[in-house]
Amino acid sequence: MALRSTVFKAEVGIADLDRQYYADHALTLARHPSETDERLMVRLLAFVLNASESLEFGRGISTDDEPALWDRDLTGAIRTWIEVGQPDERILRRACGRSDRVLLYVYGRAQDIWWRQNESALRALPKLEVWRISPQDCAALTALAERGMQLQCTIQDGAVIVAAESDTVQIEPERLNPEP
């Protein structure tokens, strides 16, 4: 019998002072059996950093032709394609061909090695923004993971403060490829 996804519910209040976006979102996240809490929380962080009324989660880790998150217009055209982790450069190249903007949130122990191996190819993709989430920030964020979460997120000057019932953490994504 196949393992089933674990469902996480998150009530997320977002105050994005950088983009002047303020909203509450009731999110349902399905964690694939092969997905870690760390990846789930980075997906949630990516949502918080790019929140809009049309941003939605993709079908998941087992679907190659969909991102972790995407923002589509009313015609179905992809405005923003968001990946998390350390994907193959070909996936990001294909995403750049299908959308107006591509964001990648890199995390994990081998992220520095992955970046050195892929940096030159990824710098050649003008629509791509690569953001690094440090292992310390990921660990702090992952510690907040619960099947039922209530989070208040404040974004100011690129830093994210995530307040949960149990703790408050500050995440500071670092842009790896400079703006064009």
Rank of each mutant, 00 (worst) to 15 (best):
Y21W: 13
A77C: 01
T6R: 04
L122S: 02
L144V: 04
P178G: 14
G76V: 05
D112M: 11
I14L: 12
T36A: 05
S120E: 15
L3M: 13
E56W: 01
A23M: 12
A163F: 00
Q170G: 10
L151F: 12
L125E: 02
L27Y: 06
G148N: 12
P178E: 15
Q150W: 05
I113K: 15
A15V: 11
L122C: 00
V106A: 15
A164K: 03
D64P: 08
A110R: 15
V102R: 02
C96P: 02
E174R: 14
H32C: 10
A159K: 14
L128E: 00
G13D: 13
P135R: 10
E83F: 03
V130S: 10
V130W: 13
D73H: 03
G76A: 00
V130D: 12
I61A: 09
E53Y: 08
R79L: 11
T142S: 11
M1C: 03
T80S: 09
V169I: 15
L104K: 09
A159G: 08
L69I: 03
I78A: 12
F57D: 08
I171K: 06
S134V: 01
W115I: 02
P180V: 05
V42F: 01
R101E: 15
D16I: 08
D37T: 08
D157R: 15
E53H: 10
N177M: 00
W70K: 02
R101Y: 11
R98L: 14
E35C: 11
L44E: 03
R123W: 01
D37Y: 06
I161S: 13
L45T: 06
M1I: 05
I133R: 05
G60M: 03
I133N: 01
N177K: 01
V7M: 07
A143R: 12
R98D: 06
I161W: 09
Q150P: 02
D37S: 11
A10M: 01
V102I: 03
A10E: 04
W70D: 00
V106G: 09
T142A: 13
E172M: 14
L125Y: 03
P126Q: 04
L128S: 02
L104A: 07
G76Y: 02
K9Y: 09
E66Q: 11
Q111S: 15
G97K: 04
G13W: 08
D137P: 04
A77L: 07
G148W: 06
Y105R: 12
L128P: 00
D73Q: 04
P87F: 13
H32V: 02
W81T: 03
L44F: 07
Q150C: 09
E165W: 07
G76W: 07
A140N: 04
S34K: 10
Q111M: 15
Q86W: 05
M149S: 04
A2P: 14
L27F: 08
C96A: 13
H32I: 05
I78R: 11
L92E: 02
E35T: 10
E11R: 07
V169F: 09
W131R: 13
P135A: 07
L27T: 04
I14M: 11
V169K: 04
S34E: 12
R132F: 09
F8A: 06
Q117C: 01
W81H: 03
R116T: 13
V102F: 01
R39E: 05
N50T: 11
A159F: 03
A159D: 14
L27C: 08
P135Q: 11
R147N: 13
L104S: 09
P135N: 15
E66H: 01
P33R: 06
A46Y: 03
